[in-house]
Amino acid sequence: MSKKFKEKLAFAVLALITMCVVIPALFILLYIIYNGIGTISWEFIFASPRKGMTEGGIFPAIVGTMSLILGTITFALPLGVGTAIYLVEYAKKNLLTKFISLAILNLAGVPSVVYGLFGLGLFVLLLGFGSSILSGALTLSCLILPIIIKSSEAAIRSVPDLYREASLALGATKWQTIYKVVLPTAMPGIITGAILGIGRAAGETAAVLLTVAAFFLPRLPSSIMDQVMVLSYHLYIISSQVPGMPDAVKNGTALVLLGVVAIFFFTATFVRIKYKLANRG
């Protein structure tokens, strides 16, 4: 077997292996779109479910997911970016900082159901927030906090020290330097990480199942202490807990959920690509 042939064979095998990832990914996308698109209608999006959820729409679940996303952004974004600023710009290089970084790294790998348990125990029961948007948003915030800290930290760290020196040498204070030079430069990276984190929260099920999600609640929340239906949890119950659900409802719900997550994902991808191009030019 010649060297050249061996190489060709190896590359062909690698291409084949890569197809084993690409095909399922595309299958998921296309299957959900193909089967779900027929269900999508004005009514499906903007009406409440009827007749034991077999008819009508999923509006309360969409509103529930949106309110959770909003709540999560409110808590997780300032806390995550603030922590990243602290770690990069203020924390001394010592054992404590190293330990904190390791802890954050580890918490990024903790299963979401474990965060759900924590949220249930602390927010729902101990602090008495009950099953509510507040409990769910706080739990999801804890869940995506490590993601946002890590991506913001990387973005802030990648700002060249040259910029910091230039600003300080002009007589700007440390905070002015961070606020006016470091953060604007790191912003695309911070935003990309935040959007991906929030997209993750939007599709999260195990954590909301334990802290906020209602099985069936065909009205809209009036305060953050209300329980809500959530898209992801709704898909879980109608596809595996309630027998005899019409396929159309399941497929439509799956498409709406994937659509919400995809909006976040493609926005982040767009920001990233645009930022890279702008950097090159």
Binding site: L162, Y163, S167
Partner: peptide
């Protein structure tokens, strides 16, 4: 500075 370091503004 040694290397020109204008801000990305």
């Amino acid at each position: 500075f040694q290397k020109p370091n204008p801000f990305p503004k």
